[in-house]
Computed example of a mutant assay.
Amino acid sequence: MTVLRPVRAGNAFEETVERLLQAIKLGVVAPGAKLPPERELAVQLGISRVTLREAIRALQEAGYLDVRRGRYGGAFVTYVPPQPGTGDLRRVVADMGTADLTDALTFRMAVECGAAAVLAASELTDEQRAVLRRRLADLDEARVEDYRRLDTAFHLSIAELTGSPLLAATCADARLRVSDLLNAIPMLQVNLEHAASQHQAIVAAILAGDPEAARRAVAEHLEGTAALLRAFLS
């Protein structure tokens, strides 16, 4: 849950809303699932429970959360990403602007390739290897409605496993910048199968301790996503 990192004191409320919204939009907390307990979440974000409650209330009013009271209560995610569609994709790109789109894709390429290379160059523990394999297995077995969320978890786990909070946060930011784009791309079975083989190549390179191969595997995967994006926009 790297996205739920401590906020700065100066804009505690605004940054808390940003952190929670990032976790919701990236699927770190799945639709229908509950945010961590209030006491735990306040400590994780480094804020008071009053500030946390204000942020949760704001997101409830905006339609992202449903707050339930009682023994089995909590803040439950109600946000569901829109169904993919070419019209939605064009609208997202129009809202971003071509320059911002290019910048976002370049940013993601740089940080995700870097994270994979750093992880591949590290001495991985058995637990780290198991986490990476588990994220890949979860993605390979994902239902269509869960695919984007588990794809995000897989990609973010590479940065998180490096042990660098800054790198993990940067990769989460890069992913968030393109999340609406990815959600709008129609899911094609052939593309999903191709992506699965690319994900396997990424994991194989990291586990083999080959930074350059890991970097190439991530670059090829992200270039494929960019090509599919261009195809639906043409």
Rank of each mutant, 00 (worst) to 15 (best):
V93Y: 00
P37D: 06
G73N: 14
M109R: 15
P186T: 05
E141V: 05
P37S: 02
P82A: 14
V7T: 09
A226S: 15
A227V: 06
T162F: 02
V118G: 02
G70R: 08
R230T: 03
V17I: 08
D88V: 08
I206N: 14
T125P: 00
T86P: 00
T2G: 04
H194M: 07
E223C: 07
V190N: 12
E223I: 04
V203Q: 10
M1N: 14
V92I: 13
A226M: 10
L52N: 08
F107P: 02
G114L: 00
K25F: 04
D210I: 04
M109P: 04
A116W: 00
Q44D: 01
M109Q: 15
F76W: 14
L20F: 04
S179I: 11
E160Y: 01
A231Y: 14
R135C: 15
A142H: 07
G163C: 03
G46Q: 11
Q83R: 12
D151W: 07
L228M: 15
R230A: 14
A120S: 00
L233E: 09
G46A: 08
G10Y: 04
P211A: 11
A213Y: 03
R71I: 08
V92H: 01
Q128V: 01
E220Y: 01
L228Q: 15
G10H: 06
G85S: 14
T152E: 05
L228S: 11
V144W: 08
A62E: 15
A205W: 03
G27P: 02
Q83K: 08
A30T: 03
D151L: 07
R175V: 00
R5K: 13
E18S: 07
I202W: 01
E61N: 10
L207K: 08
